[in-house]
Write a protein that binds this DNA or RNA. Structure first.
Lengths: 151, 151
DNA sequence: TATTGTTATACTCTATAACTATA
DNA sequence: TATAGTTATAGAGTATAACAATA
């Protein structure tokens, strides 16, 4: 069943409608805006939330790993971790096997805030993807993983 | 066949991997960057290319329609159209039935540049989606249309 | 009253280069 | 020689408010 592009109006006839890059950009813009609204109540934004998620996951990532995974410049990670640390949500720990590297770990307060924020973020995502059934949502995630993490 | 997140390394264990918003953001960042590289040779960027695409499609969109479709603020469209017009790629025409509105149409030069640029943009997209077969690509586009244009 | 285009402004995000300390 | 983190800076993108002309 093809989608009728209800929200697109007269311009749904444009060739952009077939452009995956454009669809990706528009879907991301909606998702990003809705996510930021949901996260604002917790003093977070999309980027700081992502860093907190990695720090709270028990993986003990280095700043470099965070930069690569989130596709941020390492200097941006510095600023984001600075901000989270200032709010007592994460700590920098020296990597015992590489004294150049910092491992970023969430504090107890950070883990708690992440739990609260992620619940709201998931609610916002539900809202955004309400038109997709669970199978479609899983399929979208799978296809996006392939595009987002090319071998 | 599940994807192994080859590019994600150790952090593929993170819960972000299941977060469609995050995957959308990362896929879009890659797509956006690759697109801008491809478009730079033509003096365009993702946003100005999208405006040119709408102007070159024969739809005669108003600036307001462009803003809604591309999810830009109307004031951003002013700047983008200004720039394209300065380069002789589009013209503003008064809408005969609504004197408030400007209709944006591509010039001959604009249509020609769009043809060249879109070929390169499609090549870049091929590169990005090389891991997807045609059926998967069509499926991704269909799912993204539903998310990008909610009813 | 509401909408289209416009100007102005501030903020966030992104990109690049250079430096330091370690490896 | 290369890599992790850091600082600094400039540019691109986003968000908001206000205004004139027109509906």
């Amino acid at each position: 069943m093809p989608h009728d592009l209800a929200g697109a109006g007269r311009l749904s006839a444009s060739s952009l409608t077939a452009d995956v890059s454009f669809l990706l950009a528009r879907a991301n813009a909606l998702s990003f805006a809705a996510g930021n609204v949901a996260l604002a109540a917790h003093g977070l934004r999309a980027r700081s939330y992502s860093v907190l998620a990695l720090a709270a996951g028990g993986i003990r990532p280095s700043q470099r790993e965070i930069a690569d995974f989130l596709r941020l410049d390492p200097s941006q990670v510095v600023a984001l971790v600075d901000d989270l640390q200032r709010h007592g949500l994460v700590e920098r720990e020296p990597d015992p096997v590489d004294r150049r590297a910092n491992v970023v770990v969430a504090t107890a307060a950070g883990r708690e805030l992440y739990a609260e924020a992620s619940a709201d973020a998931l609610d916002a995502e539900e809202e955004l993807h309400g038109a997709l059934d669970p199978a479609q949502r899983a399929q979208l995630a799978e296809l996006l993983r392939i595009v987002a993490f090319p071998s």
